[in-house]
Design a binder for these strands. Structure first.
Length: 581
RNA sequence: GCCCUUGUAGUUCAAUGGAUAGAACGAGGCUCUUCUAAGGCCUUGAUGUAGGUUCGAUUCCUACCAAGGGCACCA
């Protein structure tokens, strides 16, 4: 529709002997100001030496001569400083409702990424450490972006990258060795994993405050690498399996299914090979710059030579161990190998990793420019909470599991007066809890920090995930009633009134497209709230299912369209929309 | 010190260079013998400071102020 209006304006301008390169057409923020709006008169007024308002009137007069051929357009008006507003017709909205019914859950799809292979890495919790709400944040964003890109036609692979070796594992094993109770196998997988997380916190604390413990932890670390100690090997195998499986349990509830797992220990030798192949290699000869060079017995990359905003980072330590940066080189290569023909490799992390990711990216651009061009880093803000910084090294960490169960309890409390089977009740409480948490993360743009507020994140009112689910469930309940009363959806049985919710529904595809181009789920979250609000208002002011009402079939059709849009939109946020709640 | 984020109602967040800066929470009032009140309706309140570009700036540029993060062997 937008293109049609643009062409219409172009033709009108041509009639007035005005040529323009591009016409900005937008949806006014306020529905009273029309469905589409252009500022073209304001933009070109100066060039054609005219007053914007008069020019707008002139353009509108010309537009009106041809607009009769377009039954979708009801009215064109000049408003404000010289805006031209287009009001769409009753027929247009009815047609858009019909279109949504035809598309069903395919609504909002586009094909800008059709044929593209995209890999997206997110979540990345480390075995032996707690899965905390920071991981929940990365998971929510990554999963949502993955689904949005798939809705734009991309072939998406989900990837998880995890630190299976390193000091954190040694700390956890130290904590376990010092406290047998934390190794108890009689608990559920989830509780065992929580104990391992506790052991990590204890080991970490000991490492900071006790020099003997630090030496012991270093010993353990060596033994983990060379696998020389049977007892440690046993604990390692159990701890690795237990924490990894506990993560899987959580992914199931969260609605994530990874296609590939990469482990740091496996990436290290691949990265080391790349570093060694490029050691002292001179590139960009006139300036005799090198990629990797030796400095203080370590192998480093002096990125500031290429970009003054970057800095030097160590890739291989003086002890010969590869750092995160080197493993990242290996990981990048592995990703492209795993998925031949990969067009885009996305990584989602907190923004504290931004600067060194840039250094790594610079190194890759020198080694393999083709890969670097296909990489994209989505950074999100830090999850912080009232009362200080959260750290899994201390025990003031909120784990994903504990947060979920707290929210679930509140949901169950709220559901006591509704009738459900036990299994159904469990499933719905999971879905609503996940929705409360994910929505509180996804409703804001990904750049900034999130101040974590327990009360707020579990809110079921207003601007929340459960509000969206509730709106969807209510709509479904109406559809059930309509079915019982044998009122079929009929997109042609409309009356004169145009409901606000109709004016929102047809924009869904544009919102998905924008979210997909900018990797920003919050556009969808905000849009869905608007739709839900408009629907709830419609619901409150209209009797939808009614034998006496000749337009009831249309209202039912509209309600169907709302469920398709909300359910599909929630899916793109990684949230399930239950039929009842 | 240098680099990167971010500064919007009391609070948490929106606003593809546009019109009267939107929500939600909070506070106050109304609303369920019609389809789920986790709802609806009404009232209340904000662009860090100083310049610049522009017909028009929350948005772009510069400086300053404030918060957070990063800057060599942790990830």
């Amino acid at each position: 529709m937008g293109d049609k209006i643009k062409n219409l304006i172009k033709d009108a301008l041509k009639n007035l002997d005005i040529e323009v390169a591009d016409i900005a057409l937008e949806h006014p923020a306020d529905l009273k100001m029309g469905d589409y709006s252009t500022n073209i008169a304001l933009v070109i007024a100066k060039d054609v030496k005219s007053n914007p308002k008069e020019l707008a009137e002139k353009i509108v007069a010309t537009l009106r001569q041809t607009v009769g051929e377009f039954p979708e357009i009801q009215e064109i008006q000049v408003a404000g400083a010289g805006f031209i507003n287009f009001y769409l017709s009753r027929k247009f909205f009815a047609r858009s409702v019909e279109e949504i019914l035809n598309q069903g859950y395919n609504i909002g799809k586009n094909d800008v990424l059709t044929g593209k292979k995209i890999m997206i890495e997110y979540t990345d919790p480390n075995p032996f450490k707690p899965f905390h709400i920071g991981h929940l944040m990365t998971n929510a964003i990554g999963e949502s972006v993955a689904r949005i890109l798939a809705h734009s036609g991309a072939e998406v692979s989900r990837v998880n990258y995890q630190g299976d070796v390193g000091l954190h594992v040694a700390k956890a094993i130290y904590g376990l060795l010092k406290n047998d109770k934390l190794q108890d196998k009689k608990w559920t997988r989830t509780l065992q994993a929580a104990n391992i997380g506790r052991a990590y916190a204890k080991g970490s604390e000991a490492c900071e405050n006790n020099s003997e413990a630090k030496i012991e932890i270093d010993e353990i670390n060596k033994k983990i690498y060379d696998k020389s100690d049977k007892k440690i090997n046993e604990i390692y195998d159990w701890g690795f399996k237990t924490t990894m499986e506990a993560f899987e349990d959580l992914y199931k509830i969260l609605g994530t299914k990874f296609d590939f797992y990469f482990l740091e220990s496996q990436m290290a030798p691949i990265g080391e090979r790349i570093v060694k192949d490029n050691l002292d290699k001179v590139i960009d000869a006139p300036h005799s710059k090198m990629i990797f060079e030796e400095s203080d017995n370590a192998i480093v990359f002096k990125a500031e030579k290429y970009d003054p905003k970057l800095h030097t980072r160590v890739f291989i330590t003086s002890k010969g161990l590869s750092t995160y940066e080197t493993k990242e080189l290996g990981l990048t290569e592995e990703k492209f190998k795993t998925k031949p023909g990969l067009n885009l490799s996305i990584i989602v992390t907190a923004n504290e990793q931004m600067d060194y990711m840039k250094v790594v990216a610079k190194a890759i651009s020198l080694i393999n420019p083709e890969h670097e061009k296909k990489m994209f880093h989505i950074t999100h803000g830090m999850m912080r909470f009232v009362g200080g910084k959260m750290s899994s090294r201390k025990e003031n960490v909120i784990t994903g599991e504990s947060l979920l169960s707290d929210v679930r309890d509140l949901v169950l409390e709220k559901m006591t007066d509704r009738e459900f089977g036990n299994e159904e009740r469990e499933k719905i409480s999971d879905d609503v809890a996940v929705s409360a948490i994910k929505y509180s993360i996804l409703k804001q743009s990904t750049g900034g920090d999130i101040v974590y507020d327990f009360e707020r994140s579990i809110s079921f009112e207003g601007d929340s995930g459960p509000y969206l689910q509730y709106s969807h469930a209510r709509a479904n309940s109406i559809l059930e009633k309509a079915q019982k009363e044998n009122i079929l959806p009929d997109p042609h049985a409309f009356g004169v009134e145009i409901f606000e919710v109709e004016k929102l529904l047809y924009k869904f595809g544009e919102v998905v497209l924008r979210a997909s181009k900018e990797y920003e789920p919050h556009y969808i979250a905000n849009y869905l709230i608007e739709v839900a609000r408009a629907f709830n208002s419609f619901y409150g002011n209209n009797l939808i299912v009614s034998k006496e009402d000749k337009t009831s079939g249309y209202k039912v059709a509209l309600t169907y369209a709302v469920t398709f849009v909300i359910k599909t939109g929630l899916h793109l946020l990684g949230i399930v929309a239950p039929k009842k709640m």
